[in-house]
Simulated scan of single mutants.
Amino acid sequence: MDNQEAKQYFSIELLEWYRKQKRDLPWRRSRDPYHIWVSEVMLQQTRVETVKPYFERFVTLFPTVEALAEAPEDVVLKAWEGLGYYSRARNLQAAAREVAEKYGGKVPDSKEQFSSLKGVGPYTAGAVMSIAFNQREPAVDGNVMRVLSRYFCIEEDVAKGGTRALMERLQYELIPDGEASDFNQAIMELGALVCTPKSPHCLVCPVMAKCAGRLEGKEEALPIKTKAKPPRPEYRACALVVSGDGRRVLLRRRPAQGLLAGMWELPHVEFAAAGWSPAMPDAAVGDALAGWLAGELSGSRVAVAPAGPAGEAEHTFSHIHWNLRLHRLAIAPDDAALPDGYRWVDRDGMALHPLPNVFVRLLRAEGFIDDARAGA
């Protein structure tokens, strides 16, 4: 079988399988390019089952480009709370504002115009142009690279830009005329459901008979990808400060730029930045943390005292792994004016403050966030 025959077989069999087996996903019920765009941004580095309730809630809150463009950022981040990678939400809103201003709220059907928007990369542009507008554009994500690597037995490192370019050319050649929307969704679907990263379900694969990787016994070894560096460990001391009446907790807002920009959190400090050692006993950490927070609140004329350890937590970002040691601190008086960026927040107020997931978990454990408000 020559390469052209293999390509034709793949496209025909894949489309036939997809039209029989495709999942009923909320974004597939809409032809609105904005809704498809939102779903593609949410699905980056996030599982489909996780995204479904977020997508439905998000497009209910912000049903149009204009609604998203006009919403306060805190409201958008709160709707995104728990999905992680919050720069996606900020970039999506910034791009929505561009669409509202430049294109009258209509998502442009020009790849060049759409690609110029904030946060829109080659994959998102290809996915929206093909799925929403049925344009013959490749949309290469991890699922697509895995399927193509195995089917064509491509033994190039998929982490390299040259291999991605090869995959884009190959996917473009595979798309049948007038079938870009279904085909690109079909190949993603195959990677998600059948041609999975581990233990692929070859026996139910619609293109199994002609899969070069399987025929050579390499389906488990492909795709070839250089391992990313493990996330850097960071050790942090985190303050849980509850008001005297037990109704409010002290939160701090993160800087407008950088990791988790603009979100709210429990005050915390990195051990290394403070000159502390992670080997310090709990009592010493509590004393040091109280001193650090007193410095943070120095203009408030409050006394800060340790009140005992409250547990530990971990959270992994793409490049950093946080190890948090949580300590209770007491502030007196608790009605003094706070410096910019600090705020007392009660249980009802938590619904208005976007929080990273690690702090949602900690505050839920303390009873300041209930299960219904904690996100998916």
Rank of each mutant, 00 (worst) to 15 (best):
L222F: 09
V76R: 05
R97Y: 04
N143H: 10
P306D: 09
F58K: 01
L25R: 06
G217V: 14
L92E: 12
E265W: 04
G104E: 10
E40H: 07
A221T: 12
L174H: 02
A125E: 14
A239V: 08
S277Y: 00
A69Q: 05
A283I: 14
K227C: 00
A307S: 12
E366N: 01
L203E: 13
P356F: 01
E81K: 07
M350D: 06
A237L: 10
F10P: 03
K111F: 00
A272T: 15
A127H: 02
C153W: 02
P306R: 07
E101C: 09
E16Y: 00
G126I: 01
V99Q: 02
R232E: 12
L166N: 07
R23I: 09
D177W: 14
R254P: 04
R150I: 09
T64L: 12
A261C: 04
A376S: 07
L166S: 06
P138V: 01
E98N: 07
R252S: 06
D335Y: 10
G142F: 09
E265Y: 01
P206G: 09
P354K: 07
P53R: 10
K52C: 09
P339T: 05
F359R: 02
G275M: 14
V304Q: 13
V65P: 03
I131M: 12
V41W: 00
P356T: 11
E70F: 03
A239S: 13
N357W: 07
A274R: 10
V41Q: 09
T60D: 15
V345L: 02
A237R: 08
